[in-house]
C-alpha cells in the first residue's frame, strides 16, 4: 500500500473499491537500499523537507536584513515575534533561553501539519511515536529545568503549600498523575487531530471517486463529497495552525511551571 496523500487513486485500484482510510499512514522506506538499511522513511523525508523549508524561510527571509522589511522578511519577523511574545508572555523574561526550542517546536509541527495537507504528502505529525517523542522531549526538558533551578524543592510542586497535611495521600498521587499525563495529553491531542482530519479527508475523497464511477448521475452526486472536502481542507489548515499553537503554548505553560513552580 503506497502511502500517498489522501487523494491517491492508486490505493483504490489496489484495494478494489473499498474505503482504505489508514493506508496513508503506512511507513515506506525511500531512497532505495540505502534508505532501507537505515530505516529512512517518507516520514523522515518530510521531516527533513520541513526543516529545510523552515531554515529557508528564516535564513532567506532575513538575508536582506532590510530596515523596512519586504513580504518574506515580514513573515519571518512575524513568526519570530509571535513565538517570542508567546514564550516571554507565558514564562516571563527567563523564558528567553527556551525561545529557540519553542520556536523550533512550533515551526516543526506547523510545517509538518501543513505539508501533510498537500496531495501525495505524508503527515509525520499523524504518528503517535513522533508526537510522543516531541512531547517526551518537552517533558524531559521541563523536568530537568525544574530540577536544575529548584533542586529538591521541585518535589514540593506535588504538594501545594498551605494544603492540610491529611490531604497529602490524595493530593500527591493526583499531582503526580497530572504531571505524568502531560506528555500523553500533549502527544495524543496532536496525533488524534491529525489522524481524524486525514481520515475524514481520505473517506470523502474516496466517496468522490466511488460516486464518480456510478453511471450518469454519479459525477453530479460526487460534487457533494467534493464540497465537503473543500471545506475540510480549509478546516484542516485551521487545525494545523491551532494544534501547533496549542503544542507551543502548553510547552510554554509547562516551562513556566518548571521555572517558577506554580
Amino acid at each position: 500500500m503506497p502511502a500517498q496523500g489522501w487523494a491517491g487513486e492508486r490505493d483504490l485500484a489496489a484495494e478494489g473499491k473499498t474505503i482504505d482510510a489508514l493506508g496513508q499512514f503506512e511507513l515506506k522506506t525511500v531512497l532505495g537500499p540505502i534508505g532501507h538499511s537505515v530505516g529512512f522513511t517518507q516520514s523522515s523525508a518530510h521531516m527533513l523537507l520541513a526543516v529545510g523549508l523552515i531554515t529557508l524561510l528564516v535564513m532567506y527571509g532575513i538575508s536582506r536584513q532590510a530596515v523596512v522589511p519586504g513580504r518574506l522578511q515580514s513573515l519571518t519577523e512575524s513568526a519570530y515575534e509571535f513565538i517570542q511574545g508567546l514564550v516571554i508572555g507565558q514564562v516571563g523574561p527567563e523564558g528567553k533561553r527556551f525561545f529557540p526550542f519553542v520556536f523550533s517546536l512550533f515551526m516543526f509541527i506547523l510545517f509538518g501539519n501543513l505539508l501533510g495537507l498537500l496531495p501525495f504528502a505524508f503527515t509525520f505529525t499523524s504518528h503517535i511515536v513522533v508526537t510522543f517523542a516531541l512531547a517526551a522531549i518537552v517533558f524531559v526538558l521541563i523536568t530537568v529545568v525544574a530540577l536544575m533551578l529548584h533542586g529538591k524543592k521541585f518535589f514540593g510542586y506535588f504538594f501545594p503549600e498551605g494544603a492540610p497535611i491529611w490531604l497529602a495521600p490524595i493530593i500527591i498521587p493526583v499531582e503526580i498523575v497530572s504531571y505524568l499525563s502531560r506528555p500523553i495529553s500533549l502527544s495524543i491531542r496532536l496525533f488524534a487531530n491529525m489522524v481524524a482530519g486525514h481520515v475524514m479527508l481520505k473517506v470523502f475523497a474516496t466517496f468522490i471517486v466511488l460516486l464518480g464511477g456510478l453511471g450518469v448521475a454519479g459525477p453530479f452526486i460526487a460534487v457533494l463529497p467534493l464540497t465537503v472536502n473543500v471545506a475540510l481542507v480549509g478546516f484542516e489548515i485551521l487545525v494545523a495552525f491551532l494544534q501547533a499553537y496549542v503544542f507551543a503554548i502548553l510547552t510554554s505553560i509547562y516551562l513556566h511551571d518548571a521555572v517558577h513552580l506554580h
Binding site: 523522515s44 526543516v51 531554515t55 526550542f101 523550533s104 509525520f124 513522533v130
Partner: peptide
C-alpha cells in the same frame, strides 16, 4: 520503521534546533 522514525525525528529535530538556535 516506527523506532527508526523516532531516531530520525531526534536527529532531524536536533538539526533544526541547532540551526535555529
Amino acid at each position: 520503521l516506527l523506532i527508526a522514525q523516532i531516531v530520525w525525528l531526534l536527529i532531524i529535530f536536533g538539526l533544526l534546533y541547532y540551526v535555529m538556535a
